[in-house]
Design a protein around this nucleic acid. Structure first.
Length: 429
RNA sequence: GGAGAGAUGGCUGAGUGGUCGAUAGCGGCGGUCUUGAAAACCGUUGAACCUUCACGGGUUCCGGGGGUUCGAAUCCCUCUCUCUCCGCCA
């Protein structure tokens, strides 16, 4: 949620920022301005009446103690009270409308974000490694996996329907090894604290990170009388760790990493990446989340992104880092770097991580603050999150980049200790 | 699923329908004392919003919502959540 007071005083800037995202919010901002005017008319009026009401109450109390006649005050007070109630109903409607508008407006892009309309406007920040050179025609993972007997798409469809997959044998082991490898790296070398959160969360939690109310159709909701949804990312439960709390600023930044499965209905994405593991209703991800002070959050975004890149580097997977343009930013993000890994079969870089600084956008929704130096006025923290990495896509990248002419797949050096010393995955004869 | 108890400030915990934002203790912060620390003592210690250049002033908030009343932390209704016991269960 944008800061209502900031929006009030910077309508033009906000309008321009949202326009850069491809959103014409002229009408909404106009409505907001109207709400603001009415609000500022009603609040002082109501407060003035309440003040009179309080003083009348004191008069009654004092009068009664002294045995004076106070009946005549009752009627005045009663009428004033009706007036207050009437204005409060009005104010309530105004504030409701204000919230309704604010909660569906996306975050403003940071000044450093390139202006652009779509993914085509994203900018390559750096490239690591060279696209893997294979002296044979690379196979796609959806062929490799089944041929090696480590991925079964067909039986997954029988069990759960489309966009699910089963990992078996060395495939399941590889997924587990990747999770373990990533968590170990982030906790021991990058200083993150590991979290294993609930995979089901309440609507209040999803509101805090911005999935609700606008993106309910992307989520799986639990049937029945439950206010529970499957998490679409660990960002949701982990960012909500401190919802409604005021943190000691001296403890910031706080850094957390969490492995969770993620569940997305991907409504509206039919037709895209229908084959293979790329886009599934359920996938594993190791997430990085930070709570930072506003003055350090952009430095923290750089280091968080570097932490995610480190995973790819250690696995020897070629990738590039993209700065998303204004038109491609996610709802809650002020600035995002996407990491894209090279997939030989597609001869293209594909997204494997997305690292964002949401500034105070989620913190305002979730009411997460900090007190600088442990004292003084509390301000909203900045929240950051990034994949470190999407595990299923990492598995794809390993299969495709480490495939050999004979159809086997080598295990990257850094992963061997997590694979029980296994050197390669071969077809089960 | 059955039965019961509760929700008050960072924590613990008082609170008769009328100067209660709320007693007290702990914790935190500042100070005195000390070479330093501890102890002791003194002081201080919530949030949101409105208004003001500022100092300041004001309103609201005792789980959420509604009601009774001139007036509600206190009475009534309702919702949510937590805890305890029993049953079932990984």
């Amino acid at each position: 949620m944008l800061d209502p007071l900031y929006v009030r005083d910077h309508i033009e800037t906000v309008q321009q920022g949202l326009a850069n995202r491809g959103l014409d919010a002229t009408a909404e901002l106009q409505q907001l301005a109207t709400c603001e005017t009415q609000r500022r008319r009603l609040i002082p009026a109501i407060e003035g009446l309440k003040r009179e009401q309080n003083s009348t109450g004191d008069q009654v109390a004092r009068g009664k103690r002294n045995g004076e006649e106070v009946q005549h005050l009752y009627e005045v007070s009663k009428q004033r009270n009706q007036k207050i109630k009437q204005m409060e109903v009005e104010l309530d409607a105004v504030e409701r409308q204000r919230t309704l508008i604010l909660e569906v407006l996306p975050n403003l892009p940071h000044a450093s974000v390139p202006v652009g309309k779509s993914a085509a406007g994203n900018v390559v920040v750096r490239t690591w490694g060279e696209p893997t050179a294979l002296d044979f025609e690379p196979k796609a993972h959806w062929d490799l996996g089944p041929q090696l007997g480590i991925i079964d798409f067909e039986r997954a469809t029988k069990i759960s329907g489309s966009r699910f997959a089963i990992l078996m044998g060395a495939g399941a082991q590889l997924e587990r090894a990747l999770i373990n490898f990533m968590l170990t790296l982030h906790t021991t070398e990058h200083g993150y604290t590991e979290i294993l959160p609930p995979f089901l969360v309440s609507s209040a939690t999803l509101y805090g990170t911005g999935q609700l109310p606008k993106f309910e159709t992307d989520l799986f909701k639990i049937a029945g009388e439950w206010d529970l949804y499957l998490i679409p990312t660990a960002e949701v439960p982990v960012t909500n760790l401190y919802r409604g709390e005021i943190l000691d600023g001296r403890l910031l930044p706080l850094k957390y990493t969490a492995y969770t499965p993620c569940f997305r209905s991907e409504a509206g994405s039919y037709g895209a990446d229908v084959r293979g593991l790329i886009r599934q209703h359920q996938f594993d991800k190791v997430e990085l989340v930070k709570f930072a002070t506003p003055d350090t959050s952009y430095a923290e975004l750089e280091s968080l992104t570097a932490n995610a890149e480190r995973v790819l580097q250690l696995l020897g997977l070629p990738y590039r880092t993209m700065a998303l343009c204004t038109g491609d930013l996610g709802f809650g993000s002020s600035k995002t770097y996407d990491l894209e890994v090279w997939l030989p079969s597609q001869k293209a870089y594909r997204e494997i991580s997305s690292c964002s600084n949401c500034e105070g956008f989620q913190a305002r929704r979730a009411n997460i603050k900090f007190r600088p130096e442990g004292a003084g006025k509390a301000e909203h923290v900045h929240t950051l999150n990034g994949s470190g990495l999407a595990v299923g896509r990492t598995l794809i990248a390993i299969l495709e980049n480490y495939q050999q002419a004979d159809g086997s797949v080598l295990i990257p050096e850094a992963l061997k200790p997590f694979m029980g010393g296994r050197e390669r995955i071969e077809a089960v004869k």
